[in-house]
């Protein structure tokens, strides 16, 4: 009967484990002889299953909100461009960029859509055309005509909203997505490789760190059940990281050249430390299911 309840709850919460990816079988770091995450008869297992499902739904809601905001920001951007208000258009473009950063890593599975939304000029295929947010960025910051590029965004943004609405990520997948987001901050945003025209990578730094923190918040409850000490440690490093990023100043007003080298270094090292801890937590959540699959 207990097993039936577990299964029913798991299904009701929309929590599904992908058939392809099996639990990694990672040995819990605590070394406990009895692992409640794998004992289906345990009351803890039931609670974990519920918590895992809640994490999935929380994150799905967060992403839904982000994609909806992204679509809205693109609409506002279109209006500003059509009205010739470059100042407003720049603000709207930066806002849209920040929203995109929230679900950037999830677009990895939607390569075509991603290329229409956030492709860098250096990533355009030999026979392709430069489009998306960075094309609009180029237009707005180097006095080009943004109308055509924004029109393309207006078509593709709802596609992303639809594609991502189908995702149901397990807690482990949410964690690894956040880890990837942090890695992107160090590899791309902090070195100033993203905003090549506006040079306002602080927008991406803040948005991406915030997105990773938000993802952690979604899995924090289940993390506290599986490994409270590690989860507390992750929360602490995130707090330090957010403080570091906050010291950059208002992101839309901090050009790349104005970020002190020492602060850039400090943020980078803090990001790496946070990502390392978060990766460990994600591994601890693997027995609850890995990766995820779009719901049919």
């Amino acid at each position: 009967m207990g097993l039936l309840v577990v299964a029913a709850l798991a299904g009701a919460c929309g929590y599904t484990a992908s058939a392809r990816y099996q639990p990694s079988g990672a040995t819990p770091s605590s070394g406990a002889a009895h692992d409640p995450t794998t004992d289906p008869a345990s009351a803890t297992a039931v609670a974990l299953s519920v918590a895992a499902g809640a994490a999935t739904e929380t994150y799905r809601t967060d992403i839904g909100n982000a994609t909806a905001a992204f679509v809205a920001d693109i609409g506002t951007l279109q209006e500003a461009v059509d009205g010739g208000d470059i100042g407003a258009a720049k603000s709207d473009e930066l806002a849209a960029q920040a929203q995109y950063d929230t679900f950037r890593q999830l677009e990895g599975g939607n390569a075509v859509n991603a290329s229409t939304l956030d492709e860098l000029a250096t990533e355009v295929a030999p026979n392709g055309s430069f489009a998306g947010l960075h094309a609009v960025e180029r237009d707005l910051w180097t006095s080009g005509n943004a109308r055509a590029d924004v029109a393309g965004l207006s078509v593709q943004a709802p596609v992303a909203q639809y594609l991502l609405s189908r995702d149901r990520l397990t807690p482990e997948a949410i964690g690894t997505t956040a880890v990837s987001e942090l890695g992107w901050v160090v590899s791309t945003a902090l070195p100033g490789r993203e905003e090549r025209f506006s040079h306002l990578d602080a927008v991406d730094i803040a948005a991406a760190v915030g997105a990773a923190d938000q993802a952690f918040a979604a899995i924090e409850p289940v993390g506290r059940t599986v490994d409270p000490d590690l989860t507390t440690s992750v929360a602490q490093v995130f707090s330090s990281l957010e403080a570091d990023v906050g010291s950059l100043g208002p992101p839309t007003q901090v050009p790349d050249a104005a970020i002190p080298t020492t602060l850039r270094l400090s943020v980078s090292q803090q990001v790496d430390a946070t990502a390392a801890e978060l990766a460990q937590l994600a591994a601890r959540l693997a027995p609850l299911g890995t990766a995820g699959a779009p719901s049919s």
Partner: peptide
């Protein structure tokens, strides 16, 4: 190579 990012990815990945 971003070794730090690589080192925190799972063996499976």
């Amino acid at each position: 190579v971003h070794l730090e990012a690589w080192d925190r990815s799972t063996l499976g990945d």
